[in-house]
Every structure is written in C-alpha cells, then in structure tokens.
C-alpha cells in the first residue's frame, strides 16, 4: 500500500514537473520574442538620452519611412554590416508618425534583423515636431542619416548613403 502511495505521489510530482517544464518552455519562447527590440516612442527626452549614451563615440542615426524605397536599401546595408561587425553604434528612427503602420514598421525591423539596435518611431500626429527638434533645417526628405562625432556634433545627409561610407564611419 505504502509502495502504491509512493508511486502515486511520484506520478503526481512528475506531472507537476512536466507542467512546469512546459510553462518554462513557453516562458522561454515568449522571452525570445519579447527580447526582439520593440520600437520606442520618440521624444526630446529620448533624443537627449541617446545622445548622452553615445557621447564619446562615433555613431549613426538613420531615419526611415515605410513609404521610402531607398530607405530600405540603407536598412539592408545596416543589416549586412551588422552581420559582419559587432556592436555597431546605430540608432534607427521611423518617421511615419502614423499608428496605422505600427505593425508594418515592426515587420520591417524584424525582416531586416534590426531589432538589436535601438529603434524609435515618431508618435502619431507629432512627426514634424520630432523632425524639428532633431534638426530644424531638415524638411523630411528620406532616408536621412546623421553622422555624429564623438563630441556630439551632428552632420546630416539626405538620400541613400553607400556601404563604404557607412562602414568607414561605423567600423573603427
């Protein structure tokens, strides 16, 4: 009798561990998916913060839109460079400022495997405000790349930047 009780207890413990294992496995999978960097709403504080965090190093801020075919080419170059070099100092900002494209934006970040970079997006209805506090002399043409020196000085360039220039800037 004691032996059958022990077996029953053993079976229930095993069931418990099985359930726990599944739960942990699901937690693990969720962990993988959520660890993919989700885009962050962009504001002045975020800009100040990202500037401060990158102070002392040469970095790139790339702005793009889902409606800009050349932007995709520059995202693809960053994807390629990421595969070749570790720790690229790149911050990526989506400028659409439109909640209707949120899913599309995340899909593109995922497609180009850019989730490990810090990704921001302009908030719906606040696109021009965001553009203006980054650079009041920029009119929204895309892609827009800012080459930022280690002392924090910004150099903006509109249009697709080629791979060699990006490599030269990002890979020291």
């Amino acid at each position: 009798m004691a032996s059958s009780e022990t077996r029953a207890f053993g079976a229930s413990i095993m069931k418990f561990f099985k359930k726990l294992t599944y739960a942990v496995f699901i937690w693990f999978l969720v962990g993988i998916s959520t660890s993919f960097a989700e885009s962050i709403a962009f504001d002045k504080t975020q800009l100040a913060s990202v500037k401060m965090q990158n102070m002392g190093k040469q970095w790139l801020m790339l702005l793009w839109s889902v409606d800009c075919p050349p932007c995709f080419k520059e995202l693809a170059i960053i994807q390629k460079l990421q595969g070749q070099h570790d720790d690229l100092a790149v911050v990526i900002i989506n400028t659409d400022a439109n909640d209707e494209i949120n899913a599309e934006r995340e899909e593109i970040i995922k497609k180009f495997e850019l989730g490990n970079f810090t990704n921001f997006h302009f908030v719906d209805g606040r696109g021009d405000q965001s553009r203006f506090f980054i650079d009041p002399n920029w009119y929204g043409e895309l892609p827009r790349s800012y080459f930022i020196e280690s002392n924090g000085k910004f150099h903006g360039k509109s249009g697709l930047v080629n791979q060699s220039i990006l490599t030269q800037w990002l890979v020291n």
Binding site: I40, A41, Q53, H121
Partner: peptide
Amino acid sequence: NHQAMVSKV
C-alpha cells in the same frame, strides 16, 4: 541594448 530606456511603445 535599449540603453535602459524605460518608455515602451
């Protein structure tokens, strides 16, 4: 990687 930014989407 998010550089300790707490703001979510």
